[in-house]
Design a protein around this nucleic acid. Structure first.
Lengths: 148, 148
DNA sequence: TTGATTTTTGGAATCATTCCAATTTACTTC
DNA sequence: GAAGTAAATTGGAATGATTCCAAAAATCAA
């Protein structure tokens, strides 16, 4: 029913219980879908993929689960302009690169010192909690969805 | 009717004609509204401010004009998550800082070499056209909406 | 097993934004 | 300056991703 490695499952369970939330079949399924093809799908795409394996799941549940996973910091929500949100199961700091031609998003590994060095740009008194970096342009051809 | 300095007006006219577009009262008004209070308003807020001075302007026109100004690179559209777009009349490269407490957005000046240095992060073969940097956190108190 | 709390579910509601067709306006050319 | 044409504005309807809701189902603790 769900395809989720043991390590992924315990990663999920820990994150959920850390937030006082329950592990459910649907949450596992959604997380599994995201891990299986790391191509930053939209909620609709996640819904379609989840239904193949769990035909009775509802779209509302997909939204709920995605939101939950984002809350637990297991998943990131990406927004490009006003397009539908996309979801990325890569916790860990990284940037994103949007290919203008094929519309794909690639994860970009950030150097260790990135956050602190970019933070130096800010005038005194600004206290940073998060930095988001997004590139747009052309990705090299023949690349999988993930360059990390 | 419209408050737009001569330099701002010619800036607008040039940008419009460069794109083969006409200068209209409404476009001038919208641009004037953005320049007057540089607080990154939403389309609705722009609409409200424009109506004070041009009561017959329509919301559709506000959307059209904003879109046009963005197309001419006079204005930037900002998106935070799925919130309504905000608009920034600061052409020129800069980052944005969103204050989590008061919801305000501050423009952040970027160093000259920023784009090229951040581009080095990318693996070979990625061709960058645009970099977007967004900070979230707490801005220093007692700051106007613009730190530039 | 029972009860209490979460979660899921389908459908309705929301709301920023876009679309549309009709009217008005801006820029030519005579 | 008048006429013609292409572009812009307008109000209202349509769209579409997402959220809300209240009822049913599932999970957890005792």
């Amino acid at each position: 029913m769900v395809t989720l490695s043991n390590t992924a499952k315990s990663h999920l369970d820990e994150a959920l219980s850390r937030s006082g939330l329950r592990s459910t079949r649907q949450r596992e399924q959604i997380y599994a879908v995201l891990l299986k093809r790391r191509d930053h799908p939209t909620a609709d795409e996640v819904y379609a993929r989840a239904k193949e394996v769990m035909p009775t799941i509802s779209l509302a549940t997909v939204y709920n689960c995605l939101e939950t996973l984002v809350e637990c910091s297991l998943v990131k929500r990406l927004n490009y302009e006003r397009e539908p949100s996309r979801f990325c199961p890569n916790d860990g700091e990284h940037a994103h690169f949007l290919d203008e031609v094929n519309g794909r998003v690639y994860d970009i590994l950030l150097p260790e010192d990135f956050q602190e060095s970019v933070t130096k740009i800010l005038p005194d008194g600004f206290e940073v909690k998060k930095v988001k970096v997004t590139f747009t342009g052309y990705a090299p051809k023949g690349l999988d969805t993930n360059s990390l």
